[in-house]
Simulated assay, not measured.
Amino acid sequence: MKSLKKQRRIQVIALTVVALVVATGLIGYAMRDGINFFRSPSQVVAEPPAASEVFRIGGLVEEGSIVRGQGETVRFSVTDGGASVAVSYTGVLPDLFSENEGMVGTGRYVNGVFEATEILAKHDETYMPKEVVDALKEQGVYKEPEGS
């Protein structure tokens, strides 16, 4: 009788462990495309990611770098003060997107050009994403907004 109870307990524990491993695997599989790491232009230049890796890049839009192509294609450079990365984006840019302003883009780095699928710009005069502020402070080019 005691042996049957012990055997049942071991079966329940084993089943629980298997269920936990399967659940963890399914969560990881579901999130594989939802996790995008942030990189500054200096990090991208120092260690270029694989062309298949989707990540976010952020910094300031370099002055004089915005070139509008045919249709909705726009090319520009993003910098953190230490390095610049060329960006290509096809789509409608946010209204507040402009030179010397902060931006964050999501996409892939292919053949030396960041091919963005999404561009985010500041949503008011003083906002800049934390990742961009940290990267700019690290390079020593961050300026505190006026009135802060």
Score class of each variant (00 low, 15 high):
residue 1 M to W: 08
residue 1 M to S: 13
residue 1 M to T: 10
residue 5 K to Q: 13
residue 7 Q to W: 08
residue 7 Q to M: 11
residue 7 Q to Y: 07
residue 10 I to M: 09
residue 12 V to F: 01
residue 15 L to R: 15
residue 15 L to G: 15
residue 15 L to Q: 12
residue 16 T to F: 14
residue 17 V to E: 06
residue 19 A to F: 10
residue 22 V to R: 05
residue 23 A to F: 10
residue 24 T to W: 10
residue 25 G to E: 14
residue 25 G to K: 10
residue 28 G to I: 10
residue 30 A to Y: 10
residue 30 A to C: 03
residue 32 R to F: 06
residue 32 R to L: 10
residue 34 G to K: 12
residue 35 I to F: 08
residue 37 F to P: 02
residue 38 F to K: 13
residue 39 R to G: 05
residue 39 R to E: 04
residue 42 S to F: 10
residue 44 V to P: 00
residue 45 V to S: 02
residue 46 A to S: 14
residue 48 P to V: 05
residue 52 S to W: 10
residue 52 S to C: 02
residue 53 E to L: 14
residue 57 I to M: 15
residue 60 L to W: 01
residue 62 E to D: 06
residue 63 E to F: 12
residue 66 I to F: 00
residue 67 V to M: 13
residue 67 V to F: 13
residue 67 V to S: 08
residue 68 R to A: 13
residue 69 G to T: 07
residue 70 Q to D: 15
residue 70 Q to S: 15
residue 73 T to R: 15
residue 73 T to M: 15
residue 74 V to S: 14
residue 74 V to G: 05
residue 75 R to Y: 09
residue 76 F to P: 00
residue 76 F to W: 02
residue 78 V to A: 05
residue 78 V to L: 12
residue 79 T to W: 01
residue 80 D to M: 06
residue 84 S to H: 04
residue 86 A to L: 08
residue 89 Y to W: 04
residue 90 T to N: 11
residue 90 T to F: 01
residue 91 G to H: 10
residue 92 V to H: 05
residue 93 L to F: 01
residue 93 L to D: 03
residue 93 L to R: 03
residue 95 D to Q: 11
residue 95 D to W: 03
residue 95 D to G: 07
residue 97 F to M: 07
residue 99 E to N: 05
residue 104 V to P: 00
residue 104 V to K: 04
residue 105 G to V: 09
residue 105 G to C: 14
residue 108 R to P: 03
residue 108 R to G: 07
residue 109 Y to G: 02
residue 109 Y to P: 00
residue 111 N to P: 04
residue 111 N to Q: 12
residue 113 V to Y: 00
residue 114 F to I: 03
residue 116 A to W: 02
residue 116 A to I: 01
residue 116 A to T: 03
residue 121 A to G: 13
residue 123 H to Y: 11
residue 123 H to Q: 11
residue 124 D to P: 06
residue 124 D to C: 12
residue 125 E to V: 01
residue 126 T to Y: 03
residue 126 T to W: 03
residue 128 M to G: 03
residue 128 M to R: 11
residue 130 K to Q: 11
residue 130 K to W: 04
residue 132 V to Y: 00
residue 133 V to P: 05
residue 135 A to L: 06
residue 135 A to R: 09
residue 135 A to V: 04
residue 137 K to T: 12
residue 138 E to V: 06
residue 139 Q to E: 15
residue 140 G to W: 04
residue 141 V to W: 03
residue 142 Y to V: 12
residue 145 P to K: 05
residue 146 E to C: 03
residue 147 G to K: 07
residue 148 S to F: 15
